[in-house]
Design a protein around this nucleic acid. Structure first.
Length: 581
DNA sequence: CTTAGGG
DNA sequence: CCCTAAG
């Protein structure tokens, strides 16, 4: 039995809140009024649009005010996904929880050898464990991801990062987490840790391919707790690379809904702790990356020359999810899931900080870099960095700089280290890596160094209530997780806009329809509009009893039929002309 | 990239 | 919504 000490390093996370963008009509002061509207109807339309504009203003204000909070929480080492539900609900929160068993990582990283007690203290993680975590445990996975709000969320930012960056032998204390390995080579938590794990249990996938779990814990009313798990990780990306789109989708669908097969189970271990914290708005859960480094003997040929790194958990950029109160819980889950997988699947890379300095030369060996057992390298930090960034200045946000980040990362088992994905070819935006956005640990300060990494989601021009999920950015880029888009039923106002546009442009010019009426609804492609028209025609033809979903006013359906009949007739005439000539 | 249409 | 042939 070898006793080992793991060192833990904090990660800096990025937030990617998404702000609704004002529709073009709102921005330009246009009012969408069907040309053939009667006057009172026009007024009604105008009123509606004005109302939507107001809502957008409200939302902008709300988001701006929330921003501080996001920054602070991100600063404090958390990543959280917050739902913004009509901008008035209490913060709902989700936990993202990647799992990677120590054993699995050992395999993945192909590291072996014995740890030597490096004598350094563990990071906050251990502190947290002893302070706030609900009993939880696993023999071979020790990561936990709750941090006490007073420490991480509301505490001094400066001291926070000082703590993150001053890990060192001098501060060793009872926060040291010891990991033991049994005769079978299985790592086991030290009794001190295990003692924390009593009633609440959670399971960790023992293989890395299934080594991630996602859960969300929603506390919108202080009572509900929804937990969602998913097995998709960067690891599974590799596995899925060769899967055809269709199979890939099925593959992930399976992954998504058969969590138990992959070693996940519902887990409410956060509930109790969260209950205590939700009120003061300080509760947050995080995805963090922590690593463990044991300082091996530097002697060549020795088994101990390896550096052992362990990613305990990791943060992903912050997301904002906006979803109507009428949306189902399931859709909320899917929305968050999509947002999360988008982040994880698209564009994060890993940065390494050593002594607060960013290590840029990937070709250097760890020894050359200074990651060895000499005990002086313990100030080692990992960062999840956005691979691409783009500064935008959304009109609705005034001077606020907006950065869109693609995120993804992967572990490279071959090199026993964290490596980066090759650049994403599909992401044209900001091919430059904005190093300036990546703060060095010692220099962290709340307002200046943390990136305003925010992505925006556009609010449909017509329907302010449309399900606006916020999967960030670069969805068109290479996504290993080719996920089916979430279903976003057309609202009546959208249908109205569609009908009106088709009345004007006719069928067959879906791109123009898109540009005309849905230019700001980024999630509505011209194919979507074409499909919707197809279904509208179908809907109009069936009996009202057979229709499902939000009822479309008969008046609209009548117009659909009228337009369809007219266009069909025109088309038929054209055909006749053609064949006749 | 768009359209059109089947799935 | 997805997928894809075809223009």
């Amino acid at each position: 039995m070898v006793s080992q000490t793991r060192l833990e390093y904090g990660f800096i996370g990025y937030q990617v809140p998404v702000f609704p963008r004002a529709s073009r009509s709102a921005r330009e002061g246009e009012t969408f009024v069907p040309p053939n509207c009667k006057k009172d109807q026009q007024n009604a339309c105008k009123n509606r649009v004005l109302k939507e504009q107001e809502d957008e203003i409200q939302s902008s204000k709300c988001n701006l005010s929330d921003k501080e909070t996001y920054n602070e929480k991100t600063l404090s080492g958390y990543h959280q996904i917050r739902t913004v539900n009509k901008f008035s609900h209490a913060p709902d929160q989700f936990n993202l929880k990647p799992y990677s068993s120590l054993k699995g990582f050992d395999k993945l990283a192909n590291v072996s050898g014995q740890f030597e007690d490096a004598g350094a203290e563990l990071s906050i993680i251990q502190t947290v464990k002893s302070e706030t975590l609900q009993p939880t445990g696993s023999l071979d996975a020790l990561e936990m991801d709750c941090k006490p709000p007073h420490y991480f969320c509301s505490g001094s930012k400066t001291s926070l990062f000082k703590d993150w960056t001053t890990l060192g032998p001098s501060r060793r204390s009872d926060t040291i987490e010891t990991v033991s390995r049994d005769d079978n080579g299985n790592y086991m938590a030290d009794q001190r840790i295990k003692n924390l794990s009593s009633s609440r249990r959670w399971r960790v996938s023992s293989n890395l391919n299934g080594g991630a779990s996602f859960r969300n814990v929603m506390f919108s009313d202080g009572k509900r707790r929804k937990i969602f798990h998913d097995g998709r990780t960067s690891y599974s990306r590799q596995r899925s690379k060769r899967i055809s789109p269709l199979k890939r989708r099925d593959f992930f669908n399976q992954c998504r809904f058969s969590g138990s097969d992959r070693g996940f189970q519902l887990d409410d271990r956060f509930n109790s702790a969260a209950d205590k914290r939700v009120d003061d708005d300080n509760y947050c859960a995080a995805i963090r990356v922590a690593s463990s480094v044991a300082s091996p003997h530097p002697h060549p040929g020795s088994r101990d020359r390896n550096v052992k790194l362990r990613i305990k958990s990791f943060k992903v950029p912050e997301l904002l999810v906006e979803i109507p109160t009428t949306a189902t819980v399931g859709s909320l889950k899917r929305s968050v899931m999509e947002a999360v997988t988008t982040v994880l699947g698209d564009g994060l890379h890993v940065g390494i900080l050593l002594q607060g300095k960013k290590v840029r030369d990937d070709s250097k060996t760890l020894i050359q870099t200074g990651i060895s057992r000499d005990g002086k390298h313990r100030n080692l930090g990992f960062m999840l960095e956005p691979r691409h960034a783009q500064i935008k200045l959304p009109r609705c946000l005034g001077e606020q700089g907006i950065t869109s980040h693609a995120t993804s990362f992967t572990l490279d088992p071959r090199t026993s280290s964290i490596s980066l994905d090759p650049p994403v070819a599909g992401c044209i935006n900001g091919a430059q890596r904005d190093h300036h956005l990546v703060p060095s640990l010692p220099n962290i300060s709340a307002s200046t160094t943390l990136p305003n990494s925010q992505s925006r989601v556009s609010v449909p021009a017509i329907s302010g209530e449309a399900l606006a999920v916020v999967p960030i950015h670069h969805r068109a880029g290479r996504r290993e997780f080719v996920q089916r888009r979430i279903r976003r039923p057309f609202s009546v106002s959208e249908v109205e806009a569609l009908v009106q546009a088709v009345e004007k442009l006719g069928t067959g010019r879906w791109r123009d329809v898109k540009l005309r009426a849905f230019d700001n609804a980024k999630h509505r492609t011209y194919v979507d509009l074409k499909d919707k028209w197809k279904t509208l025609v179908h809907t109009a033809r069936i009996s009202p009893q057979q229709r499902r979903g939000e009822p479309v006013p008969q008046e609209l359906l009548d117009r659909v039929l009228a337009v369809h009949a007219y266009r069909s007739q025109q088309q038929a005439k054209q055909q006749q002309l053609k064949s006749g000539v």
